[in-house]
Amino acid sequence: MTTTTPAAAVPEASSLTARRRRTTLWLVAPGVIWMTLFLVLPILMMVYVSFWTQTTFKVEPILTTKSWVTFFTSETYLGALWTTIRIWLTVLAATIIVGYPTALFVGLFVRNKTLQTVLLVLCVIPFWTSFLIRVLAWRPMLGKEGAINLILQATGITTAPIEALLFSELSVVIGMTQIYCVFMVGPIAFMMGRIDQNVIEAARDLGAGFGRIFRTVILPLSMPGVVVGAIFVSVMVLGEFATAAALSGRKVNMLGNIIVTQVGSLKWAFAAVVGVVLTVLMGAVVAGLLRVVNLRKEL
């Protein structure tokens, strides 16, 4: 015996599908409009301005590649690009080295939820003060007569102040690591808190030691948190300029510092070139990190 669909049901189903499609479009439209106005159009405008003709005192909308050629043929600007990449990789590694054990302790070994919250709040306390104050606070810590050098000399570890602690690339890395480490701790601790303790107990019952449990259970399950933290840290470090200027004595030039200098000199075309390069670099880094873990599936 066969059943047939009533003819009236077909138009009704089509009408329902059309209404759902319209509803979906109305829900998506605000986000699409917002992203178009405040992300896509500014980026397209920046690319367009990067091809303008830049003279000493003005910039004209006459298309040329002179600014691009200047950037990629200058040792100064290419050096700033490699410095930015080097500092980003160093700070990213340092935040993972410092942040992962901290998140492991807070998210896995601290069972009391209240205590977990207190410890995470303690990590966020520095953000209660101004960003510039947190950056400049490192100067009296890292100076030749600063707290760190005094402690090292008092304990006999060094006999003279270490001048490389301040106004160097090392001081920039130290400052950025302290400032952005919390953005690595938070996502990893969140993922650690989602790990089912029964899985770890089952691994222990099967005779696995902590090292094997860490490699086969904890690390794979916490990788989404590492990737999210790496994205946060990468985007902020690659766009940095204030920390590098304050702690290096303007000896370390990152792409962000080049943009600030060019904008201050009203050289909009060249600043746009550096902005496009920095945007492409950020996009490549984020895309590469997203290929490590499928965040949609894991989160």
Rank of each mutant, 00 (worst) to 15 (best):
L136G: 08
A103G: 10
W34K: 03
V124S: 09
G256W: 02
I151N: 06
L150Y: 05
L136E: 03
V69G: 04
M1D: 06
A245K: 15
F57V: 09
W128H: 02
T76W: 06
L165R: 02
T216Q: 14
A93I: 12
P187M: 01
Y77F: 14
R194W: 06
M192C: 14
P140D: 06
V293D: 01
V260M: 05
T243F: 00
E240R: 11
S74A: 12
L266V: 12
V233N: 09
S130C: 08
R111E: 04
V32I: 15
G275C: 13
P42Q: 12
L119Y: 01
Q262F: 02
K58P: 00
R134Y: 04
T55Q: 10
P11I: 05
A137L: 14
V276S: 08
V173P: 00
G156V: 01
K113Q: 06
P161G: 11
T84H: 06
Q262I: 02
R296Y: 06
F232T: 07
M184L: 03
A203K: 08
E12Y: 11
M176F: 06
I43Y: 08
V40S: 07
R22V: 10
S14F: 12
I43P: 00
V10I: 14
R250W: 03
T70L: 13
L41T: 09
L247N: 04
F72E: 00
M254Q: 04
